[in-house]
Structures are given as C-alpha cells and as structure tokens.
Amino acid sequence: MSALLSIDRLRVELPAAKKGMRTVIHDVSLDVQAGEAVGLVGESGSGKSMTTRAVMRLLPEGARLSGEIRFDGISIPGMDRRALRRWRATRVGMIFQDPRAHINPVRTIGDFLFEGVMLDGRLSTSQARERISHLMRAVGIADVDRRLNQYPHELSGGLLQRVMIAAALTTEPELLLADEPTTALDVTTQEEVIAIIDELRRERGLAMLFITHDLDLAAAVCGRIAVMYAGSIVEEQKADALGLATSHPYTKGLLAARPELGRRERRLQTIEGRPISAFEVGDGCAFATRCPRVRDRCRQERPAPTQVPGGRVACHFIDFIDAAAGSPAVGSGGGTR
C-alpha cells in the first residue's frame, strides 16, 4: 500500500510541566491517498492538531516522537534539515487556524506570498507574479495589486485566510494540511472559505488532511473521516457511513449531541462525563470513563482497531456480528527512530 501520507503508530510525548513525559498522541495510524481528503475530527485537546504538527515536524521543543510518518515513501522524521526544508517548501502546504497570528504582521501580503514561491527558485519574478495574481483571483480576492501592497492588519480575517490558502497553494503542493482553517472566522465567512478550499482542492487533485472539531463540516468536504479521542483514533469511516450501527460509541455520542435546526430541544444532548487527556488514559479504552456501554474488559484492555464495512473501529463491543472476523487494520512495518 503506497499512500501519499502514511502515519503509522505515531506516538508523541511532551515534557510535562514538572517532571517526566506526557503522552499526547497514542498509537495513531492514518493514511491519506493521493488526491483524497481525510477529515481528522475531535474535541480540543484530543491531539488532532498535535498530529499535524508531528507531520510537519513542528512539535514543541523536547517532544519525543515514535512510530513512523511517511510521505510518498520517505520518512519525515528521518529527513535532514535540507530535505525537510525542501519538502516543506515544495510538496506540502499548510493552512493554519488563525491567519492573523500566523502571518507576519510587519510585512506586506505581497512579501508573504512571494516568499513562498521564490524559495522554490524555479520561477522568475514575473512568473511568480503571474501565479500569485492567478491564485489570488482563484481564492476570490479582486483587486490583487492593491492587496499585495497592504499589511495584514488592513485585511479582514476572511480575506486573510484566503491569502493563507493562496500562499499554501503557490508552490503547487501534493498535500494540504488544514488545521481548523475556519475556526477563527465568523460563520458566513466560514462557508465561503470552506467552499474555496474544497473547490481548489478538487480542481488540483490535492490530497488533504482536514482538521476540525465539526463533524458535519468534515463530512461535507472529506471522503473519509477519522475521529480522535484522547490522543487515539477511535474510528475511521467513509464520511457517508458515519453514525451507522457499527460506529464507535463516542462518534454516536457526538452525532447525537448536534442540535438540529427546526427542532426545538428541551435540552441539548451531551456525552456524560468530561473529556479526558491522552495522558490520563490507563491501560483500557480511552473512552471507558464516559461510555454508556462500558464493561470490565474496556477498563483493562485497549481495543485494537477492527475492520468494519467502510472503515475500522477501535471498540470491543461493536454492534456488528462479524466484527471478530475482521483483522486489525494497522499497517505493518515502519521502524521507530
């Protein structure tokens, strides 16, 4: 199996405030095929952003990583500085959550956009200019020349996120990492920005790892969705198969918790208990403390991902009769560092 991006049993530990290390990502395995959009969904603190940071090698100082991340067969943790820089500059594009914080405030939009293209070294200034104005129009920015000379604080959040999208695409990457690209925007802008990302991605046949806490949003733009809870992926499913009988109890809880328009509810549905952090998880299932169907086995033994139709689920008691016949979907091989 040669996925474009292949995360295999990724484990990330961060130095704790006092002493020792805290696990924030626990045995995460996930593949993204070329041209495919995969959604990574979870609550804040579930480790979804940390997973993308691990992929980009942007982990905080002192972080310890084990497992393997491969891009087109090349190990990302194994890259030297030069190769890493080259890879980041040419083959992957990243869209961050808060464009206001993630774009240098003292340099112009033009500086920001040109910086990315020119690193490549393959384009002349006029070619770069051509590509940038083309992309800016593609993300819906009209008066390109004026915008290029403006500073970030002169642009609205929505406009700035469009600039970020354009910047991520200037080097014609194969993979797009979008880390909650619309969370910092207001609702009407959110829709436009998502539509732009979705359209441009399809046109270019880009692969995308889309991080969000919004299941519906993920289902709208992604073919496949992985649900994260407390540092582990509890379920991976085709977007349209989410919430079927075979789903993980956590996913079901999330789906039930969505308020529906047009139906007045006396009280919003919630999942009992509080979300826990990855380092609080013991030997058992991460969701055991909140699961309505929890049994003794769940507290003692961590469930392995099990094949179900359309995906895999990490639960001991899925409502699927042949679940035991499925084989664990974790990829083989991949040395640790």
């Binding site: 980009m56 942007l58 890493l84 820089r85 080259r86 890879w87 980041r88 500059a89 040419t90 990243m94 961050f96 808060d98 914080a101 993630h102 774009i103 240098n104 405030p105 340099r107 910086e115 990315g116 690193l119 910047a167 080097t171």
Partner: peptide
Amino acid sequence: EHVDTAHARGVPERLILRR
C-alpha cells in the same frame, strides 16, 4: 506563530531569523 508558518513553508533558518 508566524514563525511557525515560515518554518512550515520551508523558509531557511537564516531568512527566518532576518525577515
């Protein structure tokens, strides 16, 4: 965070430091 962005875009260390 904008320095993270620069790293993610593969800007060389020297340029990050300067720009």
